[in-house]
Amino acid sequence: MRKKLGNMNKRKIRDLIGTNLMLIGTLFASVLFFLIFILLFYRSALVLENTSIIDILFSSTWNPDNGQFGLAPIIIGTILVTGIALLIAIPISLLSAIYIAEYAPTKIRRMIRPFIDVLAGVPSVVYGLCAFLFLVPLVKDVIAPLFGVRTTGLCIFTAAVTLAVMVFPIIISLCVESFCAIPIALKEASLSVGATKWETVKKVVFRASSPSILAAILLGFGRAFGETIAINMVVGGIPVMPSSVFQPGETLASLIASKYGELMAIPLQESALMLVALILFVVVLLFNILGVFILRRAKKRWNY
């Protein structure tokens, strides 16, 4: 009897320890978020004292040695690279996701899906290397001449295509999942009034899963916006306002990767890099919040 009681106490203590460990883990993960934000904010204060945020965002001269931290060319570079990447990735991913979920025979679907999930997990440096070895010469010798432009191949366009390829598996995988989650009875409802498969896909499947598609795109955007090393390898790395997509450029994330070594020695320049990191952090955060918000609203509206 006594032994049993002792046992009970031990179990209680174990339960207590387990509960608190989990709590600590959760707290640690969520506090980290705020810590990073505070750190970035605090460390970028120095550069904001010297130059106004308006100047930094809209001035086009990036010359840290002269204390000029105009981010405009880099922001434009980031928008161009991310925008073109999504422009390429979204239609191709959607078509492929629809094919996999709705048209492909089960056998092929079972073969393709794990393959795509693996692609989503390939380290980005591998994509960067492949792009450097194959895409850069292709852009230099074939694609740019088609447009009558001369380029080294290390340019915004190359970076955008690389990024598009990296975003494919994410968008495809999430979209396939959401298409497959649509109840078959909903498709039957559409088919049984005499709609063709394509009409059903277009008007019912797409519509019913549009919030998830949007969420997938926003996640893809998050990846594209923050992607660093693969871009760094092929974008050219020159923080000058690009005059065409075949010009070299620079993105926010890639800028940090290329400059942190040389700039960390001087407080003001370090602070400027911290500000760039803060911008990345805030933009990705905003897009995530937007994604969650849209998803929640649409779910309420259509009950899927």
Binding site: P183, L186, E188, A189, S192, G194, R207, A208, Y304
Partner: peptide
């Protein structure tokens, strides 16, 4: 096939209104 289906309306067990 869509013409065949158009001739026959389907009412399912659980109602599935289209997302519109």
């Amino acid at each position: 096939v869509p013409d065949i289906r158009k001739k026959m309306g389907l009412i399912s067990q659980k109602p599935y209104p289209l997302p519109m």
